[in-house]
């Protein structure tokens, strides 16, 4: 199954893993780690917005392992992971 990732689990970073999803399931986002309890809503929003910005419409699973990443870092790692998934580079 095709899977790519970007980022690390170092302090203030996050590891974003993109995997091919089951057909018809759309975009499934899971968030674990230190920010999940209080920032889950905001983080999900950012991930979905990044997918939209890249105009990807397929079925994927995006898993975020967080270690205190600010929003811009999450956006950057998500973008990088999806671009890698699409086979391109920035």
């Amino acid at each position: 199954m095709k899977t790519t990732s970007a980022g690390t689990i170092e302090s203030m970073d996050c590891l974003v893993t993109v995997t091919e999803g089951a057909s018809g399931n759309g975009i499934a986002v899971t968030i674990t780690g230190s920010s999940a309890t209080r920032f889950g809503t905001a983080m999900k929003k950012t991930v979905l917005a990044t997918v939209k910005e890249l105009q990807y419409t397929g079925d994927i699973s995006i898993a975020v392992q967080d270690n205190g990443a600010l929003d811009l870092v999450l956006a950057a790692r998500t973008k990088a992971a999806i671009l890698r998934f699409l086979g391109g580079v920035a």
Binding site: A6, G7, L72, A75, L83, A90
Partner: peptide
């Protein structure tokens, strides 16, 4: 290199 470029871009935008 590709992920770092994107990260730096975001940090510069901020």
């Amino acid at each position: 290199k590709d992920t770092a470029r994107i990260l730096i871009q975001q940090v510069l935008k901020r």
